[in-house]
């Protein structure tokens, strides 16, 4: 028992020292940042297109509630909330997370231009109630989803975050991360 604790303490100190000498998170990421954003953007756009194919297409002449756009936007807000919370808690590590998944994928998977054009058709209808309901649901639920994503990640990180926390196996890794 004592031996295990001493070994764990040593491992934590070693991991902290390793983290201290490793290069800053931005050196590698900044060189590849445009590539990561572009790849994430390509995947996000394709993902959005493929998800939207599953829904009835929006008809500008007879606007109905755009469930397809709402779905991608809420899903993307949930993921981005989580990604940013993770990146901020972990000092932007892994360095590819924010440019690839945050800026690239989530940024492109979600869209505001479609929302704007859909609202324009609704207003031209005029279906003012539909436009108001669409905007209200989009932004209220969008903010709620971002909150949920962020809180889930913070809770998950906190659960495995203590240097000698309850989750035995994750202890060393978490302490090393906390030292960064």
């Amino acid at each position: 028992m004592l031996g295990r604790l001493a070994a764990e303490q040593w491992a934590i100190r070693f991991a902290r020292r390793l983290a201290a000498v490793s290069p800053p998170a931005h050196s590698v990421a900044s060189r590849f940042e445009p590539l990561l954003v572009a790849v994430g953007g390509a995947l996000g756009s394709l993902g959005r297109f493929l998800v939207e194919q599953e829904f009835v297409p929006f008809d500008p002449q007879a606007p109905t509630f755009p469930w397809s756009t709402l779905s991608v936007n809420l899903l993307g807000a949930l993921v981005l909330g989580g990604v940013l919370a993770f990146a901020e808690r972990r000092g932007d590590r892994p360095a590819w997370l924010r440019p690839l998944v945050g800026v690239g994928f989530c940024g492109s998977f979600t869209t505001l231009s479609t929302v704007s054009v859909e609202c324009t058709s609704m207003l031209a209808g005029p279906h003012l109630g539909l436009a108001a309901a669409y905007l209200a649901v989009s932004f209220l639920a969008g903010v709620a989803m971002a909150t949920v994503g962020s809180r889930l990640v913070k809770r998950a990180l906190a659960a495995g975050g203590g240097p000698l926390g309850p989750s035995g196996s994750g202890t060393i890794a978490s302490a090393a991360e906390a030292g960064r």
Binding site: F49, E52, N73, T110, T111, L112, A146
Partner: peptide
């Protein structure tokens, strides 16, 4: 529309900023 315009605009960042 689905490629460039969809990707150049974003909803998720607005949602996180508002949050």
């Amino acid at each position: 529309g689905n490629g460039f315009c969809g990707a150049v605009t974003t909803f998720s960042t607005v949602a996180v900023d508002l949050e």
